[in-house]
Design a protein around this nucleic acid. Sequence first.
DNA 1: TATTTGTATTTTGTATACAAAATACATTTT
DNA 2: AAAATGTATTTTGTATACAAAATACAAATA
Lengths: 207, 207
Amino acid sequence: MIEYQNLNEPVYIKVKQMILNGELKQGEKIVQEKIADLLGVSRTPLMRALLALENEYLVESIPRRGMFVRSIGEKELFDIYVCREALEGMAARLLATSKDTEAVLKLKQCFDSFTGVDEIDIDTYTRADERFHSILIKLTGNTPLDKIYFFGNIHDKVIKRGLLRKPEETLEEHIKIIGAIEKGEPELAEKYAREHIKNSRILLLNQ
Amino acid sequence: MIEYQNLNEPVYIKVKQMILNGELKQGEKIVQEKIADLLGVSRTPLMRALLALENEYLVESIPRRGMFVRSIGEKELFDIYVCREALEGMAARLLATSKDTEAVLKLKQCFDSFTGVDEIDIDTYTRADERFHSILIKLTGNTPLDKIYFFGNIHDKVIKRGLLRKPEETLEEHIKIIGAIEKGEPELAEKYAREHIKNSRILLLNQ
DNA sequence: TATTTGTATTTTGTATACAAAATACATTTT
DNA sequence: AAAATGTATTTTGTATACAAAATACAAATA
């Protein structure tokens, strides 16, 4: 009966999906045995996944009460954007300082397919946007920064608002950030990256 | 035999201490049953603690191989300082924007006992410094920021270098940061907070 | 002697059993 | 009817058992 291949990863992935796609609703209690049975594993590997998710802020543990799917309020989402502003700003700065042409190329590639296009496909652009912000961090080679950033990343998806602003508006901002990095202007790169996040963050307030 | 009172917390605290005070050395493998026996608990609550510590970056899990006390290299420590620079800078900015007099008071209190003193006691000052940087984050009321910052905090202690610079030098910088927050100057507050970290970070390089 | 192979031991990953706490729900009391 | 109480059920936290992987180490081979 024992399957061996580390249930860890698959269980973690599955539970995460269930939360992100709403199969497990916000605030809902996660009854361990129920979910464990559903996934065909015991409570032990499920618990491991749940603890990882707790640290990713997707799940909340109340001692002796159980694990609950975390619900994220407006305030918290706003706060997350503040963190992103600080971290992505720093990432842009680091990249501009390093003058890594390889990195610049990869950043540019995210938006290659949109230049000179009249009608931008929202889904394609959403993925490009996600990729851009993700690799902006990764390309710095700063492991702690990458790990830390993971939190904010998650939440964007949880709230599932998709893009807050129109592609035409943000595409230009992305290009500006990449430009400053390419020119090796740390001050400017950070400034643009922060403004980019801030513009979305402000939008959250008037909503 | 069963004790009930959530072994979670005590086990977590104890293992963390063992890592921080060197009882468990960097790179050392944590043999679960050995440590569990030592603490008088089973592997289950120990595992929970270990997973929490993994997410705090103190422990590293290699599947099917075990948990190891993480060893931190120069590069990583440097990278952590970069993160601190971004996060503490943002925290200072937020506080300066909020104009929270209560917060300013608490920050000032950290260093009250050192003003006009000739010979600053290193141990007392070390604690004050730790407290200052910790509450600088907490006072923002930005929960994700607080959670995220926890990482960096840990590492400072792990490396156990204590203070990198002389109290006389850093005290002045602390005062400047608090001053800018008090005057409600976000730009300046962030600038000073970042310079403060940066000065220490640069010192790491020439070491 | 250095390298490989095979076997015994250790240790992890998972499942499961069970006590104590939490919850649900019916019954009694106000 | 609303509140309080008591009992049954569920669910968590912990300990433990066991298979499979990893490791250690001895013997065999080149």
